[in-house]
Amino acid sequence: MEEEQYYDLVFPPGTPRTIIREIINTFDVELVERGEQLSFANMEGDVRNLIAARGKKETMIEVEKFFRDKLQDFIDDSDTQTGV
């Protein structure tokens, strides 16, 4: 029997906890830690533990769309509050 493959969606640093919490409570995913090598600013090559959602491919496709939509809503709301 073939073992089921799981996929990760790594949350970028600064992702609002409310979005992560909503994903964990809405979808059949597990919250995991992943070491990721950074490649920006003065952190070039540093490895940092980031959190990710892990689940089956079909679920993770839905999670990625949900995440993008929620993040865009968060950005739009922030722009409205700051008057940008």
Rank of each mutant, 00 (worst) to 15 (best):
T80Q: 09
T82R: 15
I75L: 08
M60W: 02
E58N: 12
R21C: 05
P13E: 07
V84H: 01
Y7M: 06
I24S: 07
R34A: 11
S39R: 04
I75A: 06
S39F: 07
F11T: 01
P12G: 04
Q5V: 14
F11A: 00
N49Q: 14
T26V: 03
A53F: 00
I23W: 03
V29A: 06
I51E: 10
Q37W: 01
V32P: 05
I51Q: 09
F11K: 01
N42W: 09
S78E: 14
R48I: 04
V63D: 00
E36D: 02
K70H: 09
I51A: 01
D73N: 07
F40R: 03
R68A: 10
L71W: 05
R21S: 07
I61E: 08
E2F: 06
E58Q: 11
G35C: 05
D8I: 15
L50R: 03
V63I: 04
K65Q: 02
I61Q: 08
T15S: 12
D79Y: 10
N49C: 13
A52Y: 04
G83W: 12
R34W: 08
E22T: 09
V10K: 00
N42E: 11
E4K: 11
N49D: 12
D28H: 15
E22L: 07
T59M: 07
G55Y: 03
E3L: 09
I20C: 05
D28K: 15
Q81N: 14
K57R: 03
E36N: 10
P12E: 10
N42Y: 14
K57L: 12
G55K: 00
E22S: 03
E44Q: 15
G83E: 13
R34T: 14
I20E: 04
K65H: 03
F40Q: 04
T26E: 02
R48M: 09
E30F: 08
E62Y: 06
K65T: 07
L38D: 08
L31M: 08
F66N: 03
E2P: 09
F27T: 08
R34S: 12
F27L: 04
F74P: 01
Q81S: 14
K57F: 05
F11V: 02
E4W: 02
V47P: 06
E22M: 02
K56A: 14
